[in-house]
Design a protein around this nucleic acid. Structure first.
Lengths: 194, 194
DNA sequence: GATTTAAATGAACGATGTTCACAAATCGAC
DNA sequence: GTCGATTTGTGAACATCGTTCATTTAAATC
């Protein structure tokens, strides 16, 4: 790899790191191109040499977050043989990840591309990979479903848990204490999976 | 009411209508102050005489949407004595409303105020009123809960259904046909409520 | 009808994402 | 190592936003 390509790659990385830190600290809506390039120590226009636009950079931020999420849920799901208990642990792990990485987690689901700009296929696949994390215990519980039906069911249950976590992290409705929310979530999974 | 006050009120209404139409047609993210005032036939600055800012106007748009939603769900919930069937009908009605009013419905949950700007209390109450719509069948099913626990449970179940509907209207994961989604939602409520 | 008061106006401002002509540094050939 | 060719970083400039405010206009008050 030549000096030129190496410098470009380094800069691309620094911009991503700067963007991640900004989102983590202040949220997606506070992200500014000028702040990112200042943090990365390069000119404003450089961002557009490394990424198509801000949306493209944000997708890469979200990609990193999905990687963290996958790791966190992967750790939580293994070593639990009982499928219902595994699903409970996964739901709690999802909640914990969202609480501990609120801004990064929010960014994944808040971000929308501009009109008629389709999400890149590789990023769509990263999103869908979340469903694989609950596939094993789900298949143990729903033995009557074929693979396609199972995937749909995974989506449904994931979406439900996601909704509960999502509503909890907003101040839209009554707010729950952390413990009450966790027990509510466990009750929910138990009710759904048993 | 004097001529002055009447004209002001009329303009306030025209701006709201224009904003609603714009959101309905093109979505919240395409809403522009200049478009709204053009549609309403007034100057740009007038918007800020009728509303604090764009956010304030959007809150009023969302308030109208919540009113429509309340009406749609109210119609769906009544006349069904069996609580599980009532909850199913409510969930389907919620899905239908979201599909038929996608942009308006999305705006309600997408919109966030700027840093440290608390949502006005009257609008928070409008949001929470959604939970009352499912309170009656929920109380019939959960006879062991006191009023406060019931409200928490309502929030949890609403959030779950909301999550399923919400994920469905994005292209984040695998997409379902309308019929499959409806049957999946009915299965979900049945599983949860029985 | 004259004076006071309040509202509508739209030009101007600051902030923002994005572009592009230019400069600087790297690369390839000899 | 030298020299053109080429690619990349630069930042001023641009277009588009939301928002403000001095001015204009019209209603309300006397």
């Amino acid at each position: 790899m030549g000096k030129r390509e190496a410098a470009h790659k380094l800069l691309t990385e620094k911009l991503l790191t700067a963007a991640i830190n900004r989102v983590e600290k202040s949220g997606l809506e506070q992200l500014r191109a000028r702040d990112i390039t200042n943090d990365a120590g390069c000119a404003l226009g450089t961002l557009y040499k490394c990424y198509d636009d801000l949306d493209d950079l944000i997708i890469h931020v979200n990609s990193k977050t999905l990687g963290l999420m996958k790791k966190a849920l992967g750790d939580a799901g293994s070593n639990i043989s009982d499928p219902v208990e595994a699903l409970k642990a996964l739901a709690i792990a999802y909640l914990d990840f969202a609480v501990e990485n609120k801004n990064l987690w929010s960014a994944v689901f808040k971000h929308r591309l501009h009109e008629d700009q389709p999400t890149p296929e590789w990023h769509r696949l990263e999103n869908m990979a979340l469903l694989d994390l609950i596939a094993k215990p789900m298949s143990a519980i729903n033995t009557d479903l074929d693979e396609q039906q199972l995937q749909v069911r995974c989506r449904t249950y994931f979406a439900a848990v996601h909704g509960i976590v999502s509503i909890s992290l907003q101040d839209r409705f009554i707010s729950l204490s952390g413990d009450l929310l966790r027990s509510e979530l466990e009750h929910f999974v138990e009710r759904l999976a048993n």
